[in-house]
Simulated assay, not measured.
Amino acid sequence: MMLHQVEERLQNHQPRTIDAQLPEAAVLIPITNASEPELVFTRRAPHMNTHSGEVAFPGGKRDLSDRDLIHTALRESFEEIALPPEAVRIIGQTGSVVSRFGLEVTPIVGIMEADTPLRANMAELDRIFKVPLSYFLDKDNLTFNHWKLRNQDYMMPSFYYGEYLIWGLTAVMLVEFLNITLDADILLNAPHFNSHFPRAKGMFQSCSMDG
């Protein structure tokens, strides 16, 4: 029932676009089709130059040879977690966001078989893990990180799951997905929706988290 609602909402959703003229990237939001649907996440390896140790959806920059951003998301997912493109059924996408490194990132949503074997590319990742979709709908699992950017305050959502912290751009994309598809109604006022965000790189400060 939950997956049916997710698919139906995405089919009727008009994703936001950002006319930023920035390099493009895409991530896959993979959902397992188990009786208890789960989202698949990765954790970046500590030796990576960017995003080291951060939790992320599989994905990356668009190559010139990529047909479209769906192709980008599937190619990167195969390279990072050995998820075969044919094992994913694409059901839609959510709005583009801007990363602090100046990329316009488009989240692509796909459903995969729950028992699909995955393998982390250790050159880029140190972990693959899954989180029940229902976990993110429990408000007790939600915290907010207060950001101040150019004299404006933002309430940035984040989630702790065991040893993992899901925050930043990944949390922004996750929460927008939850709000669109499952009526999560989580406050989301993120600078990542603004094409000027990358030019503010390095100009924000984060404050303490509140439950």
Rank of each mutant, 00 (worst) to 15 (best):
V27N: 03
I111V: 12
I166H: 04
H13L: 05
R100P: 06
N194S: 13
K201T: 14
R119N: 06
V105G: 01
T42H: 02
R43P: 02
E36K: 03
T50D: 08
R43T: 07
S52A: 13
A45Q: 02
M122Y: 08
T181W: 00
E104R: 04
N151M: 11
Q14S: 13
L83N: 02
I186K: 09
T181I: 01
E124R: 03
R127N: 11
A20R: 11
G168T: 12
T94C: 03
F193N: 02
T170D: 13
L64F: 12
L22Q: 13
Q93S: 09
M203G: 13
A114H: 00
S208N: 14
G95P: 04
S134R: 05
I180E: 02
N12R: 06
L178Q: 08
E86I: 07
G53W: 09
H196W: 15
P157A: 13
W147R: 10
V109I: 09
F78H: 09
E86K: 10
A25R: 11
P85T: 07
F177Y: 06
G168V: 05
M156S: 08
Q14H: 14
A190P: 11
V131G: 15
E80Y: 08
S35T: 06
T17K: 15
S65G: 00
I91C: 09
S206C: 13
F41L: 01
A73S: 06
F78K: 08
R9N: 07
R75L: 02
A20N: 15
K61M: 11
P198L: 10
E79I: 14
E163K: 09
F197H: 06
G59T: 09
P117L: 14
I29N: 01
V172H: 00
Y164L: 07
L118Q: 00
K148C: 13
R16Y: 14
R89E: 15
I186F: 12
R127W: 13
L10M: 03
F129E: 12
L182K: 04
S158L: 15
K61G: 08
C207W: 10
G60N: 04
S35W: 04
S134L: 02
Q14E: 15
A200I: 03
S206E: 07
